[in-house]
């Protein structure tokens, strides 16, 4: 059953469809929250996200675009938690290289770092946590949540070009961070 069908059924009041929708997206939502926040807050924020999703679901006009809508809500909840702690971290950054937005793997040679391909998940996650919020967020949405550049732009409320340049910068920062830890091509 597609997400859109589940959303439509949930909007009609089908509780089983709503439960299935929550079950299906529970992991990705928590992953996003956890990558952006510490473990202690990720569970609470994930619950807040689901509460906001359930409250807003009747007003969702495009059931086929559930994922970007869901992560827009998730982003807002995470931003609320980070506000103050990282003041200004969510401000839009200038687009410095709009041409750099295709989807290479994190260890794609085109990015210039084959060593990243062999970094295991835990170490990659650890490295992610060291990145600034905007760069970390865009990597999580694009690679871990598998959203398109267009969907990332909608979630982050920035132009597509900015997403591409942010991705380019984030990959470079991640590569540099990993190299500092001894992972070299």
């Amino acid at each position: 059953m597609t997400d859109e069908l589940l959303v439509v059924r949930a909007q009609l009041g089908d509780r089983a469809a709503l439960a299935e929708l929550v079950t299906r997206w529970h992991g990705p939502v928590w992953t996003y929250a956890r990558r952006m926040l510490d473990a202690g807050r990720a569970d609470d924020v994930a619950q807040e996200i689901w509460l906001a999703v359930v409250r807003g679901l009747p007003r969702l006009r495009e059931p086929g675009r559930f994922a970007p809508w869901l992560f827009t809500i998730a982003r807002r909840s995470v931003a609320d938690r980070l506000r103050g702690e990282y003041a200004g971290a969510w401000e839009e950054l200038p687009a410095d290289d709009p041409a750099a937005g295709d989807r290479p793997a994190l260890g794609d040679p085109a990015v210039g770092d084959e060593a990243e391909a062999v970094v295991d998940r835990a170490e990659l996650v650890d490295a992610l946590s060291a990145l600034p919020v905007p760069e970390r967020e865009i990597l999580v949405l694009f690679y871990l949540e598998d959203l398109s550049v267009e969907d990332c732009a909608q979630v982050c409320r920035v132009p597509v070009g900015t997403v591409k340049s942010r991705l380019h910068r984030a990959r470079r920062m991640l590569r540099e961070h990993l190299e500092e830890r001894g992972y070299r091509p």
Partner: peptide, 21 residues
């Protein structure tokens, strides 16, 4: 080892029950 949510999907749904009652 992969880190996982401490709260399962079922628990999350149960916590939403009051809003959905």
């Amino acid at each position: 080892m992969t880190e996982e949510a401490r709260r399962s999907a079922r628990e999350t749904i149960e916590r939403l029950e009051s809003s959905l009652s």
